[in-house]
Simulated assay, not measured.
Amino acid sequence: MAILPIRIWGDPVLHAPAEPVAEITDEIRTLVADMYETMDAAPGVGLAAPQVGVGLRIYTYTYEDDEGRPWRGEIINPELWMTPTVPGDPDEDSESEGCLSFPGEAFPLRRSDRVVVTGTDIEGAPVRIEVDGWRARIMQHEFDHLDGVIYIDRISDGDWKTAQKISKKRGWGRPGVSWTPGVDDVDA
């Protein structure tokens, strides 16, 4: 297993729809194992294959359920269904999120409160996840990556301008910029 470099906003792989996984091969198994190691080292609660430069429809996740039990998994070729998003402005305290591909920052973003995700796991077994609240936010965030969308693409105009200033100051927003957990000094 290896910790992979995480691409930063502006890299083309992050802004293009990912391709479906046609077959679960040893290369896919290695990629998923590396994604877990990278996600844990970052640390993050989710990581999509495009974030490590691979344009495939795969993401890993980790969270605790309401009873404090850890849940961890991967979803290959996911499909996402969500309840309608409640209209209004997001709450900065309870609806802010960050991203390993825009490290060190968090912006408020309204998301659906309940989702269902289906797909397969690394063994090819069917996966169905039905979650709400923060866990639903994780699923939507990672699914967005597979469609070439980063959460800052969805934030308010004012926050978008702030994100652009941050990106320019840090030299982001262009191809080839990445950071490696445990190697590079970024505040993810």
Rank of each mutant, 00 (worst) to 15 (best):
A136K: 06
Y59L: 08
P90F: 02
V52C: 01
E142I: 10
D34V: 09
G158W: 01
R114C: 05
L4N: 02
A188H: 07
H15T: 14
S112V: 11
E105V: 07
E142V: 10
R170E: 14
D159K: 00
D184G: 03
G173L: 06
Y59S: 04
L14I: 13
T162Q: 11
D11T: 07
C99F: 06
W71M: 13
E97K: 02
F143G: 01
G98D: 01
A16V: 15
L146T: 04
I150R: 07
D157V: 11
Q51C: 08
T60H: 06
D113F: 10
I28Y: 10
V149A: 05
S178C: 10
R128H: 09
P126I: 07
Y61R: 03
A125I: 01
G148I: 11
T85Y: 11
I75Q: 04
D66G: 07
R170W: 11
G55C: 09
E97Y: 02
M1A: 13
V183D: 03
Y63E: 01
Y59V: 02
D66Q: 12
E64T: 12
F107K: 02
D40H: 15
W160R: 14
D187H: 12
A33I: 00
P181Y: 03
N77E: 08
Y36N: 00
P108V: 06
V54Y: 02
G124V: 12
V54E: 13
A106S: 14
G98N: 00
W9S: 14
T30K: 15
E19T: 14
Y151N: 00
